[in-house]
Each structure stands twice: as structure tokens, then as C-alpha cells.
Design a protein around this nucleic acid. Structure first.
Lengths: 411, 411
DNA sequence: TTCTTTTTTTCGAGGCTCGAAAAAATGGGC
DNA sequence: GCCCATTTTTTCGAGCCTCGAAAAAAAGAA
């Protein structure tokens, strides 16, 4: 009970930055006395800090509020993002501020299993050198991860499969190191950055060489039952259709991924093997061409939009319209895609209110993904370290407790 | 806190029928003292009852366990199921045992708004006449309901829309009367009947004239954000394809619903307007024909299976394989459909482990739906009446509490 | 009849939250 | 410059709740 409320207070502080005790009381709905007790506990153990007047000096009568803040030195975490030819790492303090950030270019496609694992370990070691010990690593990766958040099951960035980043990092640094899908991290970040718009149900789509998606349902990240990642890009748009990077046919990605648009715009057939990478500039040129005149480029974007529109329609048929965030390099051409998307959407069951569906575009994905990973790591830390005992889901518990959980879910 | 544990105890009792205090303690994970206190409270207020030795007389030493049971007279609820030309009502006691059940044949397609509402009211009145007052009505309907569970937004059983069954029943009987999708009720029932197989993530598909689906995700019924009902049947299988009952084209239902199979098997074109109803015997004849020889009937079932397979594949691409229950008249031909479904599934991203996906068929839907509605009503009763104060989601609360909820979701 | 065993109840300790009241810290007005 | 009004924060006691230990109850076994 206390644990839950501690967690509540920490979450409130993390969200609002420098709240006073009174603000926390309002935010959490707990009484002033309770907040006072919890806050003094947190301060005493060094999790929180009083930081004087905060920013705004209120010119009101009465005892001034004293701003609280999570103690940046209470802990730090490392977050990293592994994508095609790129590895980003960041060190983040307990408040969520980035202390250091670094980006490495590595040839992921050609690297062996051990080279990939060692590269991530080296990147973390390099970043954290001389820093006080961090307590957790959050690893965001492009591709499908397992639901235990231990390894990368499959990824377009490497021909290898089942890469155990989680155990490797845990062995190297001795701290919990969950591995999660990059698009899920995007969704987590969006929720922190704009809780008004992105609250309990929304969709984050990453548009670049391939297509990924993160789904927030009922206020929780939805990761499937076994593996993670809603494979929106690999829903079938046309049974038996264009060749996809995944080897199957007719996937949405095989129409709307960069490689697909490029393939179509270059007049190549839908059976042509997808190319590995396309420069952002190249895509921009295609978009420019499509904006200027009728032709294969415009047609390519049209088909891309159509595939996405039907896919979204199918998604909405299942889960109902919700705010959509479109993230990544592909947003640069979203002005061309959007009319086609809406047009296809309107033809589907999910698109009944197609015009009401709201898209937001965010061009840069990496900062978002790192931020999501950081928040995931920090809330994990809160759960495990600063307010333990709450929801120890994966702990080996005696069956009574599990049963209890089952009943509480039913009730 | 007490409220939560009371709810836990009630849920445990409802699930296991006649548990002793010791069993409840095991099941809920609470201590014996707590159970003792809660149980005596529940018994005193008449919610629970001691029922002596229960069924099995244990031939062990020691003080014998005394079996508890929910008091059947503590309350009763009415559940009803409105489907094409049919209205079923049942009166259920607080234990969940059916006291009375009745089925009416009504021409839903031709009835006016008021006739439909009055028919449901009359059916409830007729059933409950002379019985002690019931405390809740649960209304399962074929079609799309709103997320507030007030009305039937759209349904294949009537050309009318936005039928306010909830308010109408509440006005007539003065008790809460949520309206929910029939397939969701199926899913709820499956979870009660077979929690081993149907636990936190599974899919219930109703196969008959049309196609419906209920989705259990993360242990909760997933109903979209605005309306309810995962419209699996109206996901697009072939963009611009066969004409569907809903007026759109290419929906899964337009290939796999009874009317679609019948249309294809009779050699009619995919643009032919769907017929309103087909006798079960007629469908059985078609299935027989398809089993016997190559021809349009077999081809029709093939295409039906293919549409379902791709649809399931797309679904699994998003939410990962989970147990599937296939319910309703259409299961009679599932032996013909299954190979095709698996074959199409294997071509999709969601079908990577197609052979591992498990289907269970249950021919009769109505009892399942009524049972689900009954359980929904009873757990609603538990929440509102027998353990109030827990999660009063829709109550007008001061914003602090809502905020609090927001934070707790983030943490 | 007495002993064992098992279930259920009782009792007291320890936590937790909350409301009310007190204490602290400031601006405003004279 | 002093006192009052106002607002925030802390303190204190009441009231719940859960739990463990011990006691009581209710059988079978010897």
C-alpha cells in the first residue's frame, strides 16, 4: 500500500519536474499528511530533494511552496538504440535528464553475433566510463523481440537471429537490461511528452526503410503474447502481392517502405528483391518528383498511401480510431501520402469517420526512441529499487498469489 | 482495501462454487484471519452462506472444512441476447445458476424502433414476473455497441441504428442495464468456463451468417476506444473485392459469412446482394457437397477459409498467436475450413508458427453468450453493490483522483 | 476417554491513510 | 517595524486493515 503510493509520488514528481508537496497531493489525490510522510521518507533516503523555490516565485501571500525534485544523483541509467548501421547510447540521470549521449556507426549487416554483442557492450562501457555506476540498461532495437525482453528474435538490420542482448549486457554490467522494440519505446515517449494527446489508446508508426508500429491499448504498451511488436508493416495488404523484405508477399511494407516506394518509382517490378538501404536524399528527390508531376514516382507514393490506409483501416476495425503519430524519415513525404491514406481508410470499416482521425508527424525518431527507453528504464528502477514489492510480476511466487491475481483480474 | 479483498473473496467463491475458508485463503493469498473476518461479514449481511460439508466429505482427521457458497437469494440478474429474429432472456441467481430461461421469435428486420425496445422490455417483464426483484440487466446484442454500453449503434438484425436499449431498460426497471456485443460476452464466458485455456489473451470468433469477434487482451475484454466489438469480419481481405453485407467491399465476411459461401457456391457473382438469411440445413447441405466432390461448393469453402486465414494472420501479426475459439453454426463445416485457414495463415507474418495455433470449436453460441452476459452482470453487481467503492470509473470524481489514475498507469 | 490433527476464530501488534489542529513562513496594511 | 491574514507543511490521534500467534472448536484415532 505504502509502496504503491510511493510509486505514485515518484511518478508525479517525474512527470511534473518540480512540484511542491501540495501539487503532489493534488496530482495523486492523496492527503497532505500522507504526502508529507512519504516525501520526508524519500528525502531522507536521498531519492528526492528540496530545491527551494523552484522556477516561478509565486507572488502570493502565505508560506511559499517548496519545490521538490527527484534527486538526479539517486541513480542513473543507460539507454541504447540499435538500428541499421547505427548504435546510439545515452546516460540519463534519475530525473530523466541526459548526461551524455553518443552515436556510433557500425556495419550491422556484416557483423557477427559476437561483434554485435561486443559492440553494444563496448558502447556502454565507453559512455559510462568514469561515471558513477548506472543501475539499469534499456535497450531499444529495430526488430522483433521476445516477450521476456531478453533477446532480439529477428531484425532487418542483421541476418542473424535470436541475439541475446539482455543476458549479454547483464553479464557485462550486472544490471537488469531489458530489450524492447523501438516502436514501443516511441509510444512510451509520446505518452510522456504529450499525455493530453497520447493517453490510453494510440498508435505510433515508424516510417522509414521499413515500417514498424507501437500500440498503446488500455493505457498499457501492447506487446503480443509471445514476441513483441505489432507487426503492422507485415499485415497482408494484397494476398500474394509484392515481395517484402521479410520474404513474404503482399505485406504493407512491401508497398509503403522506402525500398518499396523506390522500387515502384524506379519502374522495377514488384518481385524485384528489396534493396538494403536508400539515402534520405534519394527519397526526398522522389517525393519532390511526385509532387511535381504525374508519373511512376507519384504512383509509387499513391500505392504506398493506399497500402497504409487499408492497413490502418483494418487496424481501426479491430481497435477503433485513436490518435496516430507518424514518426521518422518517411514523414518528409507525408503530405503526398496523407490524401491517399485517408481515401483508402474511408473505404474500410475502421474508417467510418476517416476525416476525424488525427495524424501527427514527428520527423526524428532516434531522440524519441532513446527518451522512451530512458523512461522505461527509470520506471523500471522505480518499481524494482525505489518502491519495490509492487507487482513483482516475474518473480517466482507461491501459487496462491498467482491465483489471487487471476481472480482479481476476473473481478 | 477491504473492498478489494471482499471482491477477491466473492470472485473466488463464484469461481469455485463451494470453497471452505481455507480454500479461499489459498486461492486469494490472503491470511486465514482476514478471510475469517471478511467471510463472517459477508455471511452476516447475507451475501454468503455456510452450506455444511459441501459435496465431498473428506475422510481426514481434524475439524472438517465448512463449505461456503454465495447466497443464491442475495440477488438475481436478468441477461438477454438479441440476435437475428430471436430474443433470449434468462433469470440468473447470485451464484450464477439459471432460474428461468425463455426464447422469443421476433421479426427483428421488420420491427420499428419502439417495437424492438418494447419487445425486450416485455420479454424481461414476462420472465421476471412474480420473481423477486433483479438488480441488473445485461444485454448482449449482435452488432456494434457504443463504448459507454448504452446503445446498439449498428446491427445486421435491423436497418435501424442507435437503438438505446440501455436507457430503455433502465427506465423500465430502474436497474443498470449495460449493452454489450455478443462476441465479447462469448469471450467472457469462455474465460469462466475454461480459465486454463482461455486466460489473458485469446480470441473468440462467432461464425454464422456474419462473422464477429471478441478479443481478450492482457486479461481484459478489449473493446475499442469509441464503439465496441473488434470488427474482425470487416477487416479488408481483398481491396475492392466481394460485396459485403455492410455495403463495403472485400471484407472477410464477404468471403466467409454464410451468405458469402452460399453466394459463391450457388455460382452467383461477388457483386450479388447478400441474402438475409440461410437455413442451417442449407449450409449443412453445402458442406456435405463440398466434402464429397470438387466444385463450386468446395471452392466456396476454400475461399472462405483463405479469407479467414489471412485475416487471422493479420490479427496475429498485431497481437501474436493466442488460443482461438470458433463458435456457432459455422463450426459444422470447420473440418473443411481448417486446412485452408492454416494454409493461408502460413503465408502471413502472424502465421510463422501456424501449426502451433490451436482452434477449439463450440457449436452453440447462445448459451455461451447468455452465460457471459450473466457473469458480466454478476461481477458488475459485485463491483457496485457487494464491494462498492472499488474502481468507480465512471463516477464523477474530482480531477485529483483522475490524475492519480493517470500516474498510476504510467508507473 | 484422551490424543492428534485440521479448521476457524480471537487477539494484539504494526502499518497505513486521513482529518484536524498546530506550526512555519511569508506578504500586506497600518 | 509590527501584527494579521494567508498559505504550506508538519504533527498527532482516530480508525481501518492485515497478519501472525495462540486459542478454541470439531472431528477421527487409539
Amino acid at each position: 500500500m505504502r509502496k504503491r503510493n510511493r510509486a505514485l509520488v515518484i511518478a508525479a514528481a517525474r512527470q511534473s519536474g518540480q512540484p511542491s508537496r501540495t501539487e503532489i497531493a493534488k496530482l495523486t489525490g492523496l492527503s497532505h499528511s500522507t504526502i508529507s510522510a512519504i516525501a520526508s521518507g524519500l528525502i531522507e533516503e536521498g531519492t528526492m530533494r528540496e530545491v527551494g523555490q523552484g522556477d516561478a516565485v509565486p507572488l502570493r501571500r502565505g508560506r511559499p511552496q517548496v519545490a521538490l525534485s527527484l534527486n538526479p544523483d539517486a541513480a542513473s541509467v543507460v539507454c541504447l538504440y540499435l538500428s541499421f548501421n547505427s548504435l546510439s547510447v545515452a546516460l540519463v540521470d534519475y530525473r530523466g535528464e541526459t548526461i551524455a549521449i553518443r552515436k556510433h556507426r557500425i556495419p550491422t549487416l556484416e557483423m557477427t553475433r559476437d561483434e554485435l554483442l561486443d559492440a553494444t557492450i563496448a558502447a556502454v562501457r565507453d559512455l559510462a566510463q568514469g561515471q558513477r555506476g548506472f543501475l539499469r540498461i534499456a535497450c531499444a532495437v529495430q526488430g522483433i523481440t521476445d516477450s521476456a525482453e531478453r533477446e532480439l528474435l529477428w531484425s532487418p538490420i542483421t541476418p542473424l537471429s535470436a541475439l541475446p542482448f539482455g543476458p549479454a549486457l547483464e553479464d557485462a554490467f550486472g544490471v537488469p537490461s531489458p530489450v524492447q522494440n523501438d516502436c514501443n519505446m516511441m509510444a512510451v515517449a509520446l505518452r510522456w511528452l504529450n499525455p493530453e494527446r497520447y493517453s490510453d489508446n494510440f498508435i505510433a508508426i515508424l516510417l522509414s526503410h521499413g515500417i514498424g508500429m507501437g500500440l498503446m491499448l488500455n493505457g498499457k504498451m501492447f506487446s503480443g503474447t509471445r514476441s513483441s511488436a505489432g507487426e503492422f508493416g507485415h499485415m497482408v495488404h494484397e494476398p500474394g502481392g509484392a515481395l517484402c523484405r521479410c520474404g513474404r508477399r503482399g505485406c504493407i511494407e512491401a508497398y509503403a517502405g522506402n525500398y518499396a516506394i523506390w522500387r515502384r518509382a524506379s519502374g522495377k517490378g514488384p518481385d524485384e528483391k528489396p534493396v538494403v538501404d536508400i539515402e534520405a536524399g534519394e527519397m526526398e528527390k522522389l517525393a519532390e518528383l511526385a509532387r511535381r508531376e504525374e508519373g511512376p514516382a507519384r504512383q509509387a507514393f499513391r500505392e504506398a498511401g493506399r497500402a497504409m490506409g487499408y492497413g490502418l483501416g483494418n487496424l481501426f476495425a479491430l481497435i477503433d480510431p485513436a490518435p496516430v503519430a507518424i514518426v521518422g524519415q518517411g514523414t518528409a513525404a507525408f503530405d503526398i501520402l496523407e490524401p491517399e491514406i485517408r481515401c483508402a481508410l474511408a473505404e474500410t470499416a475502421g474508417g467510418q469517420h476517416a476525416e476525424a482521425i488525427s495524424f501527427e508527424t514527428l520527423p526524428s525518431a532516434t531522440p524519441l526512441i532513446l527518451h522512451g527507453a530512458a523512461m522505461t528504464a527509470l520506471t523500471g528502477l522505480d518499481r524494482d529499487v525505489f518502491a519495490p514489492g509492487l507487482r513483482t510480476s516475474r518473480q517466482a511466487e507461491p501459487s496462491p498469489k498467482e491465483r489471487s491475481a487471476q481472480f482479481s483480474r476476473m473481478a
